[in-house]
Design a protein around this nucleic acid. Structure first.
Lengths: 342, 342
DNA sequence: TTGTACGCGTTATCAT
DNA sequence: ATGATAACGCGTACAA
């Protein structure tokens, strides 16, 4: 009996403490709050750790302290440039802090999201950043029972689980159409792909603005559940032209579709914007450098990620943001592709 | 004294076991290997866990078992579409397995990479996927002393730390130039951004092919350390034209630059490929749908990610891949932008 | 198939 | 500022 496991050559905190001539807890303090040690012991522990090549065991730390320094991030896609920017913001905000990121991909499935949420929470994250406001009922219950800061990003709505940062996709959709109406376009088509909740709300914005203007027509709308791509933009635009050959303008729910539509116009020798106006969504970098330049609705993705992470950090530091719901807005970047030439 | 910490209402494995009328270890087995239990106990533990809303403590699990079910992934960029595809491959390969991913962004810094490597290893990952073959000396030492499977991705070279999957960027660069030479182009420019190690090797391939053809000219090369973008592609192309107004073709180290160059041509009313041939690198989705369609060197990014993850899984399952170094190759996708019209 | 005994490496608590 | 003690929740090793 007494078949101990004791790994012989392994360097634990105890070994470091022994070499430094202090108790383990003092060595432990050195790694978490060096200031708390006297200068002499601090130096002794430091050199002992270096000499032994000590690497803290994070599992033991998490078990003993009941928490980790990991912030969980749940996003629906990694191939979507929009989220790449959000992530950049998050990483930048966390740079230099002691927190690291655990990233998970929900693939636009709220069931996957729920599963990943459970997985994350089993690891006791310091904070959580989740995409959107359409979680499963169970996910909401789970999130509400957790005591770490949670930020919902990308859009805003009623009843935040905890905190929220984003903008109204409905309003943004409306604004895109308002711009086109303002430029004198009347037969305005809609191109949509993937049709996740936020895209749906942009479509609602389109529907609302068009109806209000007395211009709504079901035939002007072409959507698909297929993931978006530039090639798809060309295909959908061709479909739209087949259904409504008299359209003067098209609002694409994202920039890839818009660029795809532009190339389809070129293929058909249609001049943009003279014969066809195009408006995209997100204002990715290329919109300003294409020929012609493409109008788009700019969304503050980087800031969204950055601020979301900062809200988590602030909360962890005991300074809860005054306003739990932040509207970052959007702006219509008017460019050549939608400027009516008189 | 005896100031215990005992959290009262907390549900641990013990609670589940008690309710199910089994010993804790039996309950433990249920979560890791349900098949090992008799049908009756299996059902009892399952319902007990559900009733109590039990959530396993992964920190305790990691501490006791000395390992985790997390595969660490180190990539240099999240905004680069290339890595988005690689990640998709990795996620797809791990889908359905019990392993999850921990993702870190090195931002093209091998020092950041080293830091993140240490952080990862403190968490005892089940496996590791790292980008490229240019690690710091310390990173190499660290990786070699770890006993989990490690796959280096994106390129291949001598002396893998463990396993490796990718292709030769040198050869790919040479192939792009070979294609242009084959089409009859002689004054071939080079556009490069970010200039990370892999881009450098593509440049070496260009240099080698041009020198071999007796066409090398330093003035044909324009590079910058600035991160890539479509807008930058236009700018660099303009710079190149200023330095070498007589160029007939341009090889861009990535597709964003290529598309930017194409738009710059349009702005200058230069017809592609008649007055200027363009070749990109990576063959992102949009290359085939632009007008004109753009030639590019296709790299098997998705497969790279997928296979890398599978190599890790296989190794973890005790089946080490026969060949530790896998060359996935590349192929020149010849399209309109580089087809000499006779 | 199930259970017993104990170790995993660290930190919280309380005391000095 | 420092230390003694126990607890964190689970899995391994071995036995039955």
């Amino acid at each position: 009996m007494a078949r101990k496991r004791i790994t012989p050559g392994k360097i634990r905190l105890t070994e470091v403490a022994k070499l430094a001539g202090v108790s383990p807890i003092t060595a432990s303090r050195f790694f978490r709050n060096p200031e708390a040690l006297s200068v002499g012991k601090r130096a002794r522990v430091e050199s002992a750790a270096k000499e032994l090549g000590y690497v803290p065991n994070l599992a033991a730390r998490a078990l003993a302290s009941q928490r980790t320094e990991v912030i969980g991030v749940l996003i629906p896609s990694l191939t979507n440039n929009v989220f790449a920017d959000v992530l950049r913001g998050i990483y930048d905000a966390l740079d230099g802090s002691r927190y690291s990121i655990q990233l998970a991909n929900t693939r636009y499935s709220i069931l996957q999201e729920e599963r990943l949420l459970r997985l994350f929470l089993a690891q006791k994250p310091a904070g959580l950043i989740v995409t959107g406001i359409n979680q499963t009922a169970d996910s909401r219950v789970i999130m509400e029972s957790v005591d770490c800061p949670i930020v919902q990003i990308m859009e805003i709505g009623p009843a935040p689980v905890d905190m929220m940062i984003g903008f109204s996709h409905f309003d943004a959709g409306r604004a895109a159409i308002a711009h086109l109406l303002d430029q004198g376009y009347r037969r305005i088509g809609f191109l949509g792909a993937r049709m996740d909740p936020r895209v749906q709300r942009r479509l609602e914005g389109y529907r609302s603005a068009m109806t209000e203007a007395g211009l709504f027509d079901e035939r002007l709308i072409v959507t698909t559940a297929v993931p978006t791509s530039m090639t798809l933009g060309g295909t959908l635009f061709a479909d739209l032209l087949a259904k409504a050959p008299d359209i003067e303008a098209v609002f694409c729910v994202n920039d890839d579709l818009a660029l795809g539509a532009l190339f389809e116009c070129k293929r058909r020798h249609m001049v943009v914007p003279d014969q066809m106006a195009i408006v995209g969504f997100n204002d990715l970098e290329f919109m300003a450098s294409s020929v012609p330049t493409l109008t788009s609705v700019r969304t503050n993705r980087y800031e969204m990620g950055r601020n979301a992470a900062m809200m988590v950090l602030e909360t962890l530091a005991g300074r809860r943001p005054a306003e739990p719901v932040v509207d970052l807005g959007f702006s219509v970047m008017e460019r050549q592709s939608s400027t009516r030439r008189v």
